[in-house]
Write a protein that binds this DNA or RNA. Structure first.
Lengths: 292, 292
DNA sequence: GAGGAGATATAGACCTCATCTATGATAAAT
DNA sequence: ATTTATCATAGATGAGGTCTATATCTCCTC
C-alpha cells in the first residue's frame, strides 16, 4: 500500500508535535517536505489525516486511528535502535562459550572475571562438554566460541592457537622416593597410574605416546575431573597425568611434585574455535581479543 | 540513528524469508538493492545482522534481537494499513451526529437505518441537544455533523439546507368544531395552546410571528418533547404547535387535524451543519450524500 | 572433479523523487 | 494595519536508491 515507510516517520512527528513546522525541525528537513509527505500519505489512503489551522495541525478521526498504530510501530523502532546501540557498546548482549570444565576453571576463569567486570551487561553462558560436543554446539549456533585442546582439524572452523599446555606425571608425598629421579616409561608403568576418562584428548595423546614406544598404558584408576586427578595423587593413590599449568598451586606448596621422564612429553595448545565465514558477535570478538 | 526506515522494511522481509532474493521478490525490487540495503543497516549499527551462506541468509544473534523489535513494528504498520483501507471502504469507523430527538426520530431515522444496513461496520453515535449545544459539540470536535432547524448563522460552520418543514397548529377530536374553519391568530388565542419548551427554535419562531402581529402567545402547557405535544393534543388538552411532517400518521388516521389559519406560517428548513475548513470523515460525507 | 544452479557481493550508470528555495495564502495577534 | 505565525504550492536540483551486468562462492550432481 504505502511503499515508503519514511512517510510514517514524518506522519508520526507531525502528529506528535501537532505542527508540520515542528516535525520538520525534529527531522532536520524543511516544512514543505513535511507538507508534501503528509499529502502523499493522505492521497494514498484517500483519507484526510489532519485538520490544518493557523496554529498548526490536528489529527482527524482517521488520522488519530492511524497514529495509534504508527506510534506503537515507531516506539518499537526506537527501542530497537537503542538496543542495537547497547549491543554495539557491549552494554547488553550475551556471550556463549563452550569448553571443558577444567579449561573454564584453570584457564578461562580470570578472563571471564575481567570480561564480566568490564561488561556487566553481557550475560555469560558457559556450556561444558567434550571436544566433539563443543564442535557440534558451534555448528548448531548454540555457542559463539569454543575453547578446547588442539589440534582441531575441521575446515568449517577457524582456530586461534592460545597458550601452550604441558602435561606431566605427578605424585604426592607417598612417592617421595621418586623426587629427583628420572624415570623411563617402562619404569613408570610399575606404578599405579591415574588417568582422565577415556574420551579425553590428553588421555588419547599420552596413550598414543606409550604405544609409539611399544608400551601399553593401562590406568589403575580412571577419573572424570582434573580435581580428582589432583586429589588422588595427593592422597598417594598413584601417579596422575595432569596439565602442569593446572597444578601450579600444588607444585608450589609441595603437595605434589613432577616426575621427570627420560622422554619428552609433547606440549599441546589451547585452541579458540569459531565458525569460519560467520561473523562473530561483538562480545565474542572482544572476549577473544582479551584472551589473546 | 537510521535515517531511512525503508531499510527496516527490507530487513524485515530478508529476515522473514531467510533470503535476500526472496525479499527482493516480495518487495518488487532487485536482489542487489536488498543486499545494499542490508549492508547499510549493518554498517550504521556496526553489527552483522545476517550470516550469509549458499542457501540464503540467517540472522545473527544481534540480527535476531533487531528482528524481534522490527517484526512488531512492521505488524503495527500492516495493521494500520488494513485499518485505513477499512476506514476508506466504510467497513469500519464511526459517525457522530448531533441533533434533536425529534429530528432523529422523525427525519433521520430512515437514513440512519439505511446507512447502518449498508455499512454495518460503522458505529453510530447520536448526541441530542439544543441547537447551541449541537454547535458547541461540532466546534469541540465531538460530533462530525449536526442536524438542526435553520437558520444558522455562524461563519465557522458550513450549512447544507435539507428538507422543508412546515409547522402548524393541530387539535384532537375534542375540538372537532374547528375542523374546516379558518381561524385568525386572535381567535386561536382563545384556546389553550401547547408549545414546546422555551429554548426551542420553533417556539421562538412562532412567538415572534404572533408578536409581529401585535399578539402575545402564552402557552397553557409547555412540554419537552414532540411526543407529548402530539399526545396532549390527541387527549384534547389543547391545541399543539407541531411540525406537520412529524404527525403525518396522526393526520392520516384522523386522531389529529390541522387548524387552518388566515396567516401563512413561515416554513423552515432542516440544516445539516459541518465545520467549515475541516475535512469531513468519509462516513460523514457518505451520510450527507445519502440524506441529500 | 567439472560443471551447473543458486546464493550473495560488487561496480558503475541512470533517473527518480525527496528535498530544497522561494513564494503564496490565510489566520491570528499586536 | 501590520507583523508573525501557520501550511500550501511551484519549480529546480542533486543525492541516492535502484538497475544491469558481472564476480564470487557453495553446494549438488553427474
Amino acid at each position: 500500500m504505502i511503499n515508503n515507510y519514511e512517510l510514517y516517520k514524518v506522519f508520526y512527528w507531525a502528529a506528535k508535535t501537532g505542527s508540520l513546522t515542528q516535525a520538520a525541525k525534529a527531522l532536520y528537513i524543511t516544512q514543505p517536505s513535511v507538507s508534501h509527505a503528509i499529502k502523499q500519505l493522505e492521497d494514498s489512503f484517500g483519507l484526510a489525516l489532519f485538520y490544518r489551522n493557523s496554529k498548526g495541525v490536528a489529527l482527524t478521526q482517521e488520522g488519530a486511528i492511524l497514529y495509534s498504530y504508527i506510534e506503537q510501530s515507531q516506539n518499537f523502532i526506537s527501542r530497537a535502535e537503542e538496543k542495537m546501540a547497547a549491543l554495539k557498546n557491549l552494554d547488553s548482549g550475551e556471550l556463549r562459550i563452550g569448553g571443558s570444565d577444567s579449561l573454564f576453571k584453570h584457564y578461562l576463569l580470570p578472563y571471564l572475571e575481567e570480561f564480566h567486570q568490564r561488561h556487566p551487561g553481557i550475560k555469560l553462558h558457559l556450556n561444558h562438554g567434550t571436544t566433539p560436543e563443543i564442535i557440534s554446539f558451534l555448528k548448531e549456533g548454540r555457542i559463539d566460541l569454543g575453547v578446547v585442546r588442539m589440534p582441531i582439524v575441521d575446515s568449517q572452523l577457524e582456530v586461534r592457537e592460545s597458550i601452550q599446555l604441558k602435561d606431566c606425571f605427578v605424585a604426592g608425598p607417598r612417592y617421595e622416593q621418586l623426587k629427583g629421579e628420572t624415570l623411563s616409561l617402562e619404569m613408570l608403568l610399575e606404578f599405579p597410574v591415574i588417568l582422565f576418562s577415556r574420551n579425553s584428548r590428553a588421555r588419547m595423546a599420552i596413550t598414543e605416546l606409550f604405544q609409539s614406544y611399544g608400551y601399553k598404558l593401562k590406568p589403575e584408576i580412571e577419573v572424570g575431573s582434573v580435581e580428582l586427578l589432583i586429589e588422588f595423587a595427593r592422597k598417594g593413590l598413584g601417579i596422575s597425568y595432569v596439565t602442569k599449568e593446572f597444578i601450579s598451586k600444588e607444585l608450589e606448596e609441595g603437595s605434589l611434585f613432577e616426575i621427570q621422564l627420560d622422554v619428552k612429553l609433547p606440549p599441546t595448545h589451547v585452541g579458540i574455535m569459531t565458525m569460519r565465514n560467520m561473523p562473530l558477535s561483538i562480545s565474542a570478538r572482544r572476549f577473544i581479543e582479551l584472551v589473546q
